[in-house]
Nucleic acid binder design. Structure first.
Lengths: 146, 146
DNA sequence: CGTTCTAGTTGTATAGTACAACTTGATGCG
DNA sequence: CGCATCAAGTTGTACTATACAACTAGAACG
């Protein structure tokens, strides 16, 4: 087998290991925010508010799933809904102050975990690894993580 | 922010994106084998048979979870249980011929997906990316993917 | 108008998971 | 030996995330 083929196999194996571990540990590290909730909140922060339908499309989730996640986040007072005055079918979702705080806190703790895991890596390797990951995720067929 | 810090943030973000996508697409691409089942079967193949308790410990799953997964895999005739003659509490799990085939088939299809995604990468980059991933996963605190 | 489209909710079902209680077999101690 | 304790697995129960289908409410367009 060529070096390229064997590298692809390693990438497959290691990405699978990572995905499995992430799945296993996601809920336990941040009980206040599941991986999906974290992602949705992060998206709201980036976008400065968006519709549930946008979240569903962007993350390839069913609108009913998003609806329930959003309902939970609203119950927890992390987001609020504002009726779009232009179109009364639409509810624009916004982070609350509490939501922003929780998001920042979870982001900090995740960042710390990654930093610790990457401690001791030479800067040059960090930069290259980051570039490879971006390239991988941006690759053709946007959704295919598997 | 230093280049190193910004690289760590990128790694965090891209790994999170990957984990979310993997989670979303895992079940859909291989209806015959969930990501966990695939992993368990793969472990059985590597080890050439092991106990349910070993699987639970290795993948940080509850023994009841493994018990049900194993039951499903046995119902599907992908694995079989053999009572350990030394200790009648223990059931040693083995792949069946069908299990080996399904595993090989899913592995092939996953490999094809990765190969397609990585098509066009220079061999040198594949090799380096693979090395970074191995280093990341092998890193301190074995479980922390998050 | 009414038909059709869109945003979102709710009913229902499934998978994966954990925890606790239990069963069965092994081990060890007095 | 015989009883207490430990270990492997199973089963009961509950919860979360998810999808699909049916529905409601509002908008758009002829």
């Amino acid at each position: 087998m060529s070096a390229a083929q064997s590298a692809v196999e390693t990438i497959q194996r290691e990405m699978t290991i990572f995905a499995r571990r992430a799945r296993a540990s996601a809920g336990r590290m941040h009980p206040e925010l599941s991986l999906v909730s974290y992602t949705l909140l992060g998206h709201l922060e980036e976008e400065g508010g968006c519709r549930a339908t946008d979240l569903a499309a962007h993350y390839a989730l069913d609108k009913s799933t998003v609806s329930r996640q959003v309902a939970a986040l609203e119950r927890a007072r992390l987001i609020e809904r504002r009726l779009d005055p232009e179109d009364h079918r639409v509810q624009v979702l916004h982070l609350t102050e509490a939501g922003r705080e929780i998001l920042a806190q979870v982001t900090r703790s995740r960042r710390a975990a990654f930093r610790e895991r990457l401690a001791g890596w030479p800067e040059e390797d960090l930069v290259r690894f980051a570039a490879y990951l971006e390239r991988y995720n941006a690759g053709p067929g946007g959704a295919g993580a598997d």
